[in-house]
Amino acid sequence: MADIHFLAASGNGPVECRIALASLLSILEKEAKARGCTFEATAGRAPDGHGPASAIVTLGGGDAMRIAAEYGGTIQFVFKSPVRPHHKRQNWFVGLRQIELAGDAGDITIDPRDIRFETLRAGGPGGQHQNTTDSAVRATHVPSGITVICRDERSQHRNKATAIRRLQAALQLLVERDISDAKTALFLANKDLERGNAVKVFRL
């Protein structure tokens, strides 16, 4: 089964929403591992150390689609602000939606010299259909530090090509652009977070 990709975003909410997003990434990683799925996260910038405004999450394995169905949408976190102790608000919202990373990369181009490839033995679930050769690849865009893993194909060459497209798409999603850009708006628009319709609520 091909990997599933998600965009996790805190909207243009305050720092507490980024703290909530960091907690969500930790929760998703534990959930994925407990259910035999692989987990990778490509996080955006965390300028003050309180968590990124956005991240791209990749899940692989038989239960990945079920996790997607359970977590897709608006997620509510309830906690007192650790950075503004006298702030009365305790409800913070982040969003998780499925995206495609192998498609249009917009205007992003990558110098091949800026990509570092590592071959991996495909791990995680898969049974008799699991790829047992070193055809899976990890591709790192050295200037940005963004890393993606591709294990979809049995051919290392095809996995490298897919990894490059995913790097381009990840950069397109994470790059800072005008808010009118439709892709960047996924990260920044509060209207994407429907506060009254949380699919999950976590109390920290």
Score class of each variant (00 low, 15 high):
185 A>V: 00
33 K>H: 14
126 G>R: 05
183 K>L: 13
113 R>K: 15
187 F>V: 10
182 A>E: 14
149 I>L: 06
22 A>K: 07
3 D>W: 08
141 H>L: 03
73 G>I: 09
186 L>S: 06
166 R>W: 08
198 A>D: 09
130 Q>S: 14
13 G>I: 10
138 R>H: 01
147 T>H: 04
57 V>W: 01
13 G>S: 12
164 I>Q: 07
175 V>P: 04
199 V>F: 03
86 H>F: 15
78 V>K: 07
152 D>L: 05
178 D>G: 06
46 A>D: 08
162 T>M: 14
63 D>T: 08
177 R>C: 05
164 I>H: 08
202 F>A: 11
139 A>S: 06
147 T>F: 01
200 K>A: 10
195 R>N: 10
91 N>V: 10
128 Q>E: 14
151 R>Q: 14
96 L>H: 01
145 G>T: 03
4 I>T: 11
52 P>I: 06
1 M>C: 14
164 I>R: 05
137 V>W: 07
7 L>V: 05
69 A>E: 12
119 T>V: 14
175 V>A: 10
41 A>W: 02
191 K>F: 09
66 R>E: 12
98 Q>E: 11
124 G>P: 04
85 P>S: 08
112 P>L: 12
105 A>D: 00
141 H>M: 09
184 T>K: 10
176 E>G: 01
13 G>M: 03
69 A>N: 12
114 D>Q: 15
101 L>R: 02
177 R>Y: 00
103 G>L: 01
65 M>I: 13
125 P>H: 02
106 G>V: 08
159 N>E: 13
117 F>P: 05
159 N>P: 09
84 R>Y: 09
